[in-house]
Simulated assay, not measured.
Amino acid sequence: MSYLPIAPGGQVPVTAAGELLLFSTPPAPDAVHTVLVSAELTAVSVEREVVAALAEAAGGRLVEPRHFGEDRLVSRAVALLRHRGQLLYDPVDGSPLSFSEDGVVAIGGEGRQIFPRVDPAVIGLVELAGEERILLGRNARHGRFFSLIAGYVDPGENLEEAFVREVREETGRRVSQVAYWGSQPWAVTGSLMVGFTSVTEDEDAISETDGELAETRWVSRGELDQLPLARPGSIAHAMITAWRNAL
């Protein structure tokens, strides 16, 4: 059995070479929560300072969970520990929760099982019809980089409807030819990001927007290198890269 300490924000320790730092014995006796991620891996929730100290003692460092965005075990570990940290009481009767032996399923006062929550979100490429340009946006609150249009699915929507709505709300454009591209778990927020491609004939906005984006911009392949883009490890980066290389 190997043990992976994880900070409350999902940060994980890595070696000097950038590889995941695992321990053969529990790395912190005062771990807040413990979950069995697989038959070979247990994740433990430890204060950030403790995880950073463990990494430093091994000659490594602490990194954000996006560095392991494609690692399914790390994503599962972060998501399960997030579930443990947020869920304390049965939402039906208010009774304190206990957890199954592996630390995954919560048990309510009447034996009710509560499974980890996953929130579906949509994200995708909007390409201008007849031109090789895609629409990128910069978020109004934390807009350090340009990324794809994204948002959460509303109750009663299917995924395609959610993407059409998000593009219209955030950019004022109408899209068609919505097609599935791929997906990625985003464990830090408990999301499952579902990616789509689409086409619009609206070069300019045809309706008011919700103000979530500080800026939108049509970008060609040659202009991508001139912009700060969504970081590696994210589905946005993977989709932009795939479009750039699709010549």
Rank of each mutant, 00 (worst) to 15 (best):
V44A: 01
H33Y: 15
A17V: 00
E212N: 12
G222A: 07
E157T: 05
E157C: 03
A39M: 09
T34I: 08
R76F: 11
P29L: 07
L97G: 00
Y3E: 06
P65G: 03
G9R: 10
G10N: 02
E40L: 11
A246E: 15
R61T: 03
L97T: 04
T25P: 04
M1L: 14
F115I: 06
V199G: 01
L73Q: 04
E64K: 07
G59N: 11
S100C: 08
P116I: 07
S147L: 10
T25Y: 07
Q184Y: 09
V126Q: 01
G94N: 12
A230P: 03
V104L: 08
A77W: 02
W181D: 02
S198N: 13
R48D: 14
A57E: 12
L247E: 12
L54H: 02
A150R: 06
T200P: 05
D204T: 12
S147K: 13
L81I: 08
S207H: 10
G111I: 13
R138W: 10
D30A: 12
I114G: 05
Q86A: 11
E70Y: 14
G10W: 00
S183H: 14
W181V: 08
P96H: 13
Y152N: 11
E161H: 09
L21M: 15
V37N: 02
R117Y: 11
R72D: 10
V12N: 00
E223G: 07
D202S: 12
A39G: 08
E201W: 05
F145Y: 15
R82D: 01
P120F: 04
R165Q: 12
L148Y: 01
D71W: 04
S220E: 14
G222T: 05
D202C: 12
S24C: 10
A52Y: 06
L21H: 01
V153M: 10
S147G: 15
A238S: 05
L97D: 02
L136K: 00
V51C: 03
L213S: 03
P13W: 00
A150Y: 14
T189M: 11
R221V: 07
M1F: 14
D119Q: 09
R244W: 01
T197G: 06
T209W: 05
L135P: 01
Q177F: 12
D154G: 06
I114P: 05
T171V: 08
I6H: 00
R174L: 15
E64R: 09
R165W: 15
L247D: 09
V78N: 00
G60T: 11
D90F: 11
I240D: 00
R133H: 07
N158P: 11
E201L: 07
L36A: 14
P185D: 06
A39N: 08
Q113K: 13
G60Y: 03
R141D: 12
A16M: 06
S95R: 10
S45G: 09
A79N: 02
E215H: 14
A43L: 07
G10Y: 00
D202Y: 10
V44P: 00
G85W: 07
D225W: 06
F145Q: 02
N139C: 06
I114K: 05
I134R: 02
R221T: 06
S2K: 11
S98D: 11
D102G: 14
A17P: 00
A16E: 11
S95Y: 08
D119H: 07
R84H: 09
W181I: 04
P232H: 08
P13I: 00
L227M: 15
L22G: 01
I149M: 14
I240C: 04
A179K: 08
T34A: 08
D204V: 10
F163I: 10
G10D: 03
I114H: 13
E47L: 12
L224N: 02
